[in-house]
Design a binder for these strands. Structure first.
Lengths: 209, 209
DNA sequence: CTTGTGACCAATATGTCAATTGGTCACTTT
DNA sequence: AAAGTGACCAATTGACATATTGGTCACAAG
């Protein structure tokens, strides 16, 4: 039987307990380590509790569910990528080069997770497939980054100024999605850079004044 | 346990027995009906044999495996989409409009399969995920269609002629992929048309002379 | 009020084993 | 040859009992 799994999904694991709390961070750290090592499914909440020296029940003072823990770990991991992107847009490159590097960074980070932290990759895949909050936040942040680059390019005159900013950003985000999507990533892995080059070239042509 | 399935995959179900044979078509027809009704997994090869009044062993004179039957059904279904696209490029629209309609057709066909033939959708998803031959052929045919439109647009002067044709086509194919990809389709379903509009607009801007 | 837990329950995972299923082959019929 | 099959086997599956796990709660200690 290979029938696809409908999955419980779509629930939004929400907050619980104090957001800033040393124990909360301990849990996330332990979860990060365990998930990377044993995978999400094979890590039990009791494992995490034992790792930080508390009882299982206490974990649930900070997280509504195991999935919420996975979400937190995803946020942490995706945050690393976002940090790289933030550094990029703060840098001295031209808007066009920044746009290109967004693709490069996403591909490289995606590959890094896929090859070096494959169990985390699985979690992120689940997060995307089931629409965990971490993913929506991530997408929004990337949209903001793209928007910043586009605005910069328009201001400097490097990009055209006829088309509405929103339309441009939506278009770029659409082109970008497959490169930020774990499922597409692993499927296109072989010629990922080639198609990214083609995609970036297309975007830049569309932006010429 | 929700661990992802590594899957046998990647084998190329190949041909067996005479390609043109009434029985072969019967098998495909019966398989199409059964797969649509009961799904791929719950349809046994014996079911198909019974449906056409032969023994199970005879089926294997025409197909190397059950997956090969699934592949044939996929080819048939994807062929319907390709036929629509062929009609499109033979039509009187401008290249730009044709390009837009390629997206529209792909989305509409994708939705149709997803909503009205969901069990087939599952098969196509497997076909894409596991790289069945039907998918590679489909992709190539679409690439050819895109190429034809681009060449037409270049010839008529509607599209720019600076960039190499291959680069342009690769770019468009990259943008197109998420709209032809079953997994992305069902995930983006709500605002599919909106992002398609943005993507097409971006492509057309990139093609302006 | 915050920190912390053992005991408890429904749901899910796992191990086991007989029944099915995908797939092959030697063989008959036409 | 081509058309067609029953019997057979290894691998998967389904069903079911058992063990774990995710998650809650009432309660204790500082």
């Amino acid at each position: 039987m290979t029938e696809s799994d409908p999955g419980p999904s779509l629930e939004t694991p929400s907050q619980r307990g104090p957001l800033e709390h040393a124990t909360r961070d301990q849990i996330i750290a332990a979860a990060g380590a365990h998930f990377r090592h044993y995978g999400y499914a094979k890590t039990t909440v009791s494992d995490l509790a034992r790792a930080i020296g508390y009882s299982k029940a206490y974990i649930y003072k900070f997280f509504e569910s195991k999935q919420a823990i996975g979400n937190a770990v995803s946020i942490e991991r995706l945050g690393i990528i976002l940090a790289e992107l933030d550094a990029l847009i703060a840098g001295p490159l031209s808007p066009g080069e920044k746009l290109r590097d967004v693709f490069t960074i996403l591909i490289e980070c995606g590959e890094a997770i896929y090859f070096n932290e494959r169990r985390l990759h699985d979690i992120v895949t689940a997060a995307v497939a089931e629409g965990w909050p971490a993913v929506a936040a991530y997408r929004e942040r990337i949209a903001a980054i793209i928007r910043a680059i586009v605005l910069e390019g328009r201001a400097s005159g490097e990009f055209e100024r006829e088309t509405a900013v929103e339309v441009i950003c939506d278009g770029i985000m659409t082109v970008l999605r497959p490169f930020a999507h774990p499922v597409m990533l692993e499927q296109t892995l072989p010629d990922l850079r080639a198609s990214a080059t083609a995609a970036v070239a297309l975007i830049l042509r569309s932006l010429r004044p």
